[in-house]
Amino acid sequence: MKLSSIINKDCSKAAVLFNSKKRALEYISELASQHLPDHNAHEILDAFLTREKLGSTGIGKGIAIPHGRLKGIDSIFAILVTNQNSINFDAIDNRPVDILLAMLVPEGDNASHLKTLAEIAGKLNNKEFCKQLRQAPNDDALYQVIQLQD
């Protein structure tokens, strides 16, 4: 799977300035709602927060993969945001987070969800890729890093 097949160019945002996890998820939800006409930002934020309540999606090494299930979408929709300053995300290793790969996934379909997660994890496990994501100075450069990885 190509990352560029689930992340639109408009949905990769570099060096954004957030000061909290909540604010980051609000920003991502607002951005997602602009691309998913049947869902408003509030509903999307709810999906993310419902999942975060079960345990942080801060999976370590400065990376978080906030995600939630949404009714009525037929394929995975992702947003990649890098943050200028790392923020507290209650991550597993207590490290603050500066790479957020947010995903909205259709309800059901566990096997396909697991496969997508495995592929995304494979990319984020590449230190050089993460370094390039962090160094991308603007949205275009960030999207280029994503495309080059594909």
């Binding site: 999976i59 370590g60 090494k61 990376i63 597993i92 566990n110 096997a111 697991l114 496969k115 997660l117 495995a118 995304i120 994890a121 494979g122 984020l124 496990n125």
Partner: peptide
Amino acid sequence: DSVLALLMLESSH
């Protein structure tokens, strides 16, 4: 101890 590496196993039911 690595969430990313564990996800890469793609261990399904």
